[in-house]
Design a protein around this nucleic acid. Structure first.
Lengths: 298, 298
DNA sequence: GTGAAAGCGCTAACAC
DNA sequence: GTGTTAGCGCTTTCAC
């Protein structure tokens, strides 16, 4: 491996000067800077990040912990983050928590081992944030994405679930619907963003003077397939809803499959408004003749 | 920051013993190992990855350079890779090349700076692999994903584009189609996987004794929107095809949009077979009454 | 089995 | 502006 020492020798300057020229800090004369840079490229010198991190205490790495990188919401966010970070000279380290707090904890721990300078996390459990509080207390900048954690006072970027849900429901109420079901995926733990949507569903119905009960709520416990079952379960009930609000894009996906398999047509047999927007939503509209999957949210 | 030295002092052993106990290498008596581990957890000790990488020469980091993490093909691969890596104690560093060789080069360079122990790359340009050959020559394990690079002898994982394309075309030929168009996205540079599919399209038609010409080929140069235009262009030609083969999932997406906007129905007005499989393909089938988007490929 | 000590390649004072 | 020097926190000989 060629080190900064080799470059210094080749350029005929001291190690410190070579480091200054290559690291672009401190003062160097133009002459020696050019000499160093030429020597470096002649020797195919490559900076050693580990050494730099160890010596400087900062890695220029930012960690991103997502629930599921396959979820288009997160992969889009990852791409945006990576691009933005790159502009500022940072590299993004992406870790998957699989919507599991334990794995999330491990991911945060691993990222901290690698000395990330900051952490962006989509927390899986709004009630379990000790590891995040810990990181924040240690002086690591922590930003929450899409979800929050109770009692954790850090910056967070979330969509307005209450407003989005209210808009969706008011649209359906405006069409005359009175039995409006909700499909929501509680993945075993309280996800802050979903609690907000469920609460807004209740609040909006109550404010409109429309009665609701638990038979209009269907939860799922995993991606895809369960949204399918949750929808079927809802539609099989004694007094099925005339409209459905799906609170996540996985719920939407499952609901559309179920609606298709039941041979139902929208909006003739059922109306649907979904939170989030998948780029293929437009095709789902063909399940019926008109607008399914209204676009709501960020 | 609490270091291994602090742990050693707390446990009443030497630094070397503490390191052996924590790093799980070399010999330690059970007694001192337990003492060290307890001291470590009492002090909230966290390993310093940069120091370990610098001293040991290996980072337990693996780099993954993808064309576009938003593309579901890559996000699925990323998730699988990350999960598999984690099992072996490795962490995945994901970088986006944006299908740009220059950015790919930078990404590889950055990853090497951080001392990755291996590199998985979906190369953007099958004719520009100097940076990859370089890494391989430096002893870094390099694996190519989805695409290959001319002259680069490294392991690679690709789908069989020739066989998949042939299957798609033979299906259409079997249905009686004789004018079969192809939509393919050449993103400015030769992508090995696409060259294979285009060649297979030609070969299969020729072998079947069906004539073809460039008016049946439509290329796009970016995601989404261009597949839409490419399809319209193809269908606007003097003798439009009766069937279309889309060679990538972006092409498929654009084609479906175009078909919908033209008010065409499948398979009445047009047949379509697509390479790759998007998880929403099933909804697109509703553009017509029957099978669009046959599933081909890995 | 354990300890002492020498680096890994870089940054960052500090003197000149 | 440049060189000298002391670490950063760990791994890794090598004696004991």
């Amino acid at each position: 491996m060629v080190t900064i020492r080799d470059v210094a020798r080749e350029a005929g300057v001291s190690q410190a000067t070579a480091a200054r020229a290559l690291g672009a800090y401190g003062y160097t004369s133009d002459a020696s800077r050019v000499a160093v840079i030429e020597a470096a490229s002649r020797l195919h010198y490559r900076l050693n990040g580990a050494a730099r991190t160890l010596a400087s205490g900062s890695s220029n790495l930012v960690g991103f912990v997502v629930g599921d990188i396959e979820n288009s919401f997160f992969s889009t966010a990852a791409r945006g983050l990576a691009d933005a970070m790159e502009e500022f000279g940072y590299t993004l380290l992406i870790a998957n928590s699989d919507e599991d707090v334990e794995r999330e904890r491990r991911a945060v721990s691993t990222l901290r081992e690698y000395g990330v300078d900051g952490l962006v996390v989509a927390p899986t459990d709004s009630s379990k944030g000790a590891h995040l509080a810990d990181a924040a207390k240690a002086g690591l900048p922590v930003v929450l994405l899409d979800r929050t954690v109770r009692g954790l006072q850090v910056d967070s970027v979330v969509s307005d679930g209450a407003v989005g849900t209210r808009m969706a429901l008011e649209h359906l109420l405006g069409q005359g619907h009175r039995r409006i079901g909700i499909i929501i995926d509680f993945i075993g733990v309280p996800l802050s963003s979903l609690g907000v949507r469920l609460k807004a569903w209740k609040d909006t119905l109550r404010d409109a003077g429309v009665s609701y009960d638990d038979s209009l709520i269907s939860t799922m416990s995993g991606p895809m397939q369960d949204g399918y079952e949750a929808t079927n379960e809802l539609l099989d009930r004694r007094y099925p809803p005339t409209a459905i609000f799906t609170a996540t894009n996985f719920a939407t996906d499952g609901a559309l499959r179920a609606i298709r398999d039941r041979g139902m047509s929208m909006p003739r047999d059922l109306s649907l408004v979904a939170f989030d927007d998948n780029d293929w939503s437009v095709f789902a509209a063909h399940l019926g003749r008109s607008a399914a999957g209204a676009r709501i949210g960020p």
